[in-house]
Design a protein around this nucleic acid. Sequence first.
DNA 1: AAGAAAGTTTAGCATAGGCTAACTTATATA
DNA 2: TATATAAGTTAGCCTATGCTAAACTTTCTT
Lengths: 147, 147
Amino acid sequence: MALSNKKGKVNKLRSAAFKRVRADHSAELAGDYVEMIADLIDERGEARCTDIAMRLGVANATVVKTLKRLTDQGLVTQEPYRAIFLTGDGWKLAEDVKRKHEIVERFLLALGVPAETAKSDAEGIEHHVSADTLKAMARFVFRNPFN
Amino acid sequence: MALSNKKGKVNKLRSAAFKRVRADHSAELAGDYVEMIADLIDERGEARCTDIAMRLGVANATVVKTLKRLTDQGLVTQEPYRAIFLTGDGWKLAEDVKRKHEIVERFLLALGVPAETAKSDAEGIEHHVSADTLKAMARFVFRNPFN
DNA sequence: AAGAAAGTTTAGCATAGGCTAACTTATATA
DNA sequence: TATATAAGTTAGCCTATGCTAAACTTTCTT
């Protein structure tokens, strides 16, 4: 009985990690979109459907559908046939993601990972990094700057 | 024209990273399942539906459905109402994932991340780490062993 | 050996994230 | 200005991953 209680607790802890991964996944796409929209606005003044689709490597219609969700979630605004903009929350999230992205990528570089790989791996890793880990990575970059 | 060709190339490179992330995601679940099944077999001689469901924090029916896919993919074997086993490929994948998992977790510990966090973050990160990055992590662990 | 409990499976539903094809609107150029 | 091209939208499809509820086996207990 004491044993099975302990087992229950262990499993709860264990399953929490997987639950977090699943939650991270559903937040991931939103992060990628707003970051990309922010980049596009910075680079060329506006973000357009087609550019997002190309950069993401996805069909146009997929972008449209996803943007609808993001609009519902209050991250994005748009009018039919017009460019896409970010709400206040959208900008905030974009900044957050971009910051994380930079730290992870620079960390991988500092660790000695080749540049191309660092870029590619950072894209997958960034959404699964907790505040603690991010802090440790930042510390490492600070002590071992790549350039 | 030269410019738009260059842009096309840049976008192709960029989108490749996202494509890889999406591919990683669909492989992820299979990896988690076989690793967990391997653990259960090691720990108690057999893997059962309910245990997997508890550890993953997911409903029983979800496990059943996923196992059907894994069986189709040749990673798992099972007979109705009986325990679950791994095929040769299943074991191979499980070993691979476990190895990656261990390196990532020990790497995070060596980096100074708290134990609980390391465990939890490793679960998300491990599936997005390329061979290059894994090698860099292993090197780091080797030079900065945590214990 | 019968009935209760535990575990497994099926059915049916929902959401997210992909796709293509057909259609509509905006823009650029002849 | 008219029209061709580019861009955005809609509709309808698919798969993966979740869920609950109900049905069916197996196992345990009396």
